[in-house]
């Protein structure tokens, strides 16, 4: 399989899947190593950006997914009026950012930072699928631990937690 065929096959797989597909699985399906596949993916991402392509490849954690180019949102709106995801309120954003940086984190730890009760925010974030429960902390009362998930990365358009804005604690 030459590079062009690999690229074409990638699009075909991702189009059919819709969802994010682990890059490791893509490599197995294409019968190439991940080391071969990764630079090809990077190349495709750069090419798409240069060409202002309608469909972009997006890395979400160690998965790959197709998404529409934000540049063409207004036309998608006109054509389809898709259900727009709403933005998060300030209290949800604050709670979510604490989870993102401190995960896995308990409700008490979040409340210590914010200085307010966070039950409602946590319930809303779970309902919106941006955070998940991840077991319990092995300490008194076994409190629930919260983590962010893939939907969180997608919602903010970042590839991994490494892409979070840096936290300035010294100021």
């Amino acid at each position: 399989m030459n590079e062009t065929s690999i690229k074409n096959a990638l699009y075909a797989i991702l189009f059919v899947a819709g969802d994010a597909v682990p890059i490791a699985e893509l490599a197995v399906s294409l019968e190439i190593s991940q080391d071969t596949l990764l630079p090809i993916i990077e190349d495709m991402i750069i090419q798409n950006a240069q060409n202002d392509a309608g469909i972009l490849l997006k890395k979400v954690d160690k998965k790959l997914q197709l998404c529409s180019n934000p540049r063409y949102m207004q036309y998608i709106d006109k054509a389809l009026q898709p259900i727009r995801k709403s933005r998060l309120s300030q209290s949800l954003l604050e709670t979510l950012s604490i989870i993102a940086y401190k995960q896995p984190v308990t409700r008490i730890e979040i409340e210590q930072v914010r200085g307010v009760a966070c039950n409602y925010s946590l319930a809303m974030l779970i309902e919106r699928g941006l955070i998940s429960r991840s077991g319990r902390m092995k300490t008194l009362g076994n409190p629930m631990l919260y983590v962010t998930n893939d939907e969180f990365l997608r919602h903010f358009g970042i590839e991994s937690l490494k892409d979070l804005p840096s936290l300035n604690l010294t100021e």
Binding site: G18, D19, L56, K58, Q65, L66, C67, S68, N69, P70, R71, M73, I76, P82, R84, K85, R87, L88, Q90, L93, E94, L96, S97, I98, A100, Y101, V113, R114, R154, H155, F156, G157, I158, L164, P165, L167, N168, L169, E171
Partner: peptide, 23 residues
Amino acid sequence: AFKDASGTLKEYEIDALKSCYKL
């Protein structure tokens, strides 16, 4: 620090909401 970070995340959110993903 977290309040500032959530402000930056808000900007990320505004950009990211312009992309659509398939189910």
